[in-house]
């Protein structure tokens, strides 16, 4: 699905990723943990197409060079990033935005665009599964949303888009215990043999619910250690310094 090979990234001459390699097969769930500033969000952003980095190395997505694809093409082809800090977009109605986004992706895949009624039905159903207040759909996108509401809104988008490769950047940070379960459940419902996840987190708790197939530690811009759930448990006890 996603094959990252020896990826280097710099911004303003500052090296952030230093030869990172990671292979994610269809259906696998990978967790990435690592200290603040180690480059986790940078990795997620580069995969989604954010500009401004000096990049070397190879990344293939579904056996094609990911860097050949524009930002929106990556989204059209099933790549999704739940942002660590979702942006507030004043004046843009949340529900309208979700519909525009979903229809742009559907259209590019040759699917029929949803009309307002069809969309409303689906979005209401998905929002209620995430225990989101429907009223939020009529507010301006993320504007004044609480931290947890923003994160849930990202998961709502993921559940609407049903991506092939979802990257969640600290979606669990700032969520209360109930919300955490709901979000984990959102991931688990989407989980199947074809769909892959890259879950960036600082906490074992989310992983207890999701049970990833692999856990990696990202330090100083590369994968310092890989393992399974036990690695996350060990990190929780001893921290990163002992690695």
């Amino acid at each position: 699905m996603l094959n990252i090979d020896n990826l280097y990234a710099k911004i303003d001459k500052k090296a952030i990723l230093n030869g990172l390699s990671l292979k994610i097969k269809p259906g696998e769930v990978h967790a990435v943990m690592g200290p603040n500033g180690s480059g986790k969000s940078t990795l997620a952003n580069i995969l989604s197409g954010k500009q401004g980095y000096e990049i070397s190395g190879n990344v293939s997505y579904e056996n094609k060079n990911l860097f050949d694809l524009a930002i929106e093409e990556r989204a059209h082809k099933g790549l999704f990033l739940a942002f660590q800090y979702p942006l507030e977009i004043p004046g843009v109605n949340t529900s309208n935005f979700l519909k525009t986004s979903l229809n742009a992706i559907r259209k590019s895949n040759g699917k029929k665009e949803l009309d307002a009624l069809e969309f409303l039905k689906i979005v209401k159903e998905k929002a209620s599964k995430l225990k989101m207040d429907e009223k939020i759909l009529n507010r301006q996108l993320n504007v004044g949303f609480s931290g947890g509401e923003k994160k849930k809104n990202e998961i709502l988008q993921m559940s609407l888009i049903e991506p092939k490769m979802a990257i969640l950047d600290e979606t669990d940070s700032g969520l209360d215990i109930d919300a955490l379960k709901i979000v984990a459940n959102g991931v688990n419902t989407l989980r199947n043999k074809e769909r892959s996840f890259l879950i960036i987190t600082h906490y074992q708790r989310l992983l207890d619910y999701i049970k990833p197939d692999f856990v990696h530690v990202l330090m100083k811009g590369k994968i310092a250690k890989s393992g399974c759930m036990e690695l996350a448990e060990e990190l929780e006890k001893v921290g990163y310094e002992k690695l």
Partner: peptide
């Protein structure tokens, strides 16, 4: 630019 990136990452050109 970050807002543009956010929207484009959701499939808008």
């Amino acid at each position: 630019e970050n807002s543009i990136f956010y929207l484009m990452s959701r499939g808008l050109n």
